[in-house]
Design a protein around this nucleic acid. Structure first.
Length: 195
DNA sequence: TACGTGATCACG
DNA sequence: GTGATCACGTAA
């Protein structure tokens, strides 16, 4: 079942980031479905230095300041598209970076989009999974209740004991906020990004 | 371990 | 306008 807007409009970004583990991210690429189970997320909020929203609204981050339930997609290091889920109400800028998926449907298509030969680790990182699902900045601001990109609950239950929380990756510039344990992943899942 | 690659933002 | 920086991935 497709998650409705009310899932995203709540105000606890870390709670939502945990609840996204085990949900299915689905993209429709010119009529073909590609999807994967979310196995790793990171929460970001305007109240801490790790977030793009910390210094206020800019052209890049403006969708974070809008209503939850849309995609925030930006280019990182000039090469990688990053996919985030905007949460909370207007002017409460919060978002969740999806860092890794376990492939489900459309694996052949993902391999082609990634331009690799192997299925191994094809979606085990934030830049990899966007390439595999055909997500780019054209989808910035697109609703997650649209027919291009959405998230489904297929009844997969991830118990609290199966969830590890840890500091987020690659945000040393955030000072002590880099230590917040706002990265969440499924314990032992082989698709979690490696560092 | 190093670096590609280009948008973004804080300065003038 | 300009330059430093960046929520990464790959090859080596």
């Amino acid at each position: 079942m497709k998650l409705s807007n009310s899932f995203y409009l709540r105000n606890k970004v870390t709670v939502i980031a945990r609840q996204l583990l085990g949900k299915i991210l689905v993209a429709n690429i010119r009529g073909q479905t590609v999807s994967g189970m979310i196995v790793e997320t990171e929460a970001y909020s305007e109240i801490e230095k790790g977030s793009h929203a910390y210094k206020g609204k800019t052209k890049r981050n403006e969708v974070m300041f809008g209503q939850g339930g849309v995609a925030y997609v930006y280019l990182c290091y000039g090469v990688h598209e990053m996919f985030n889920i905007v949460t909370n109400r207007v002017n409460k800028a919060e978002a969740i970076l999806v860092r890794a998926l376990q492939p489900m449907e459309g694996i052949d298509r993902m391999i082609k989009l990634r331009r690799v030969n192997s299925f191994k680790r094809i979606t085990s990182g934030p830049g990899k999974l966007t390439q595999a699902l055909g997500i780019d900045r054209k989808l910035n601001g697109v609703s997650l209740t649209s027919d291009k990109l959405w998230i489904e609950d297929r009844g997969i239950i991830i118990r609290p004991k199966e969830i590890i929380s840890a500091p987020r990756i690659g945000i040393d510039y955030a000072g002590k906020d880099a230590l917040l344990p706002w990265r969440f992943f499924i314990k032992g899942n082989e698709w979690v990004s490696k560092y």
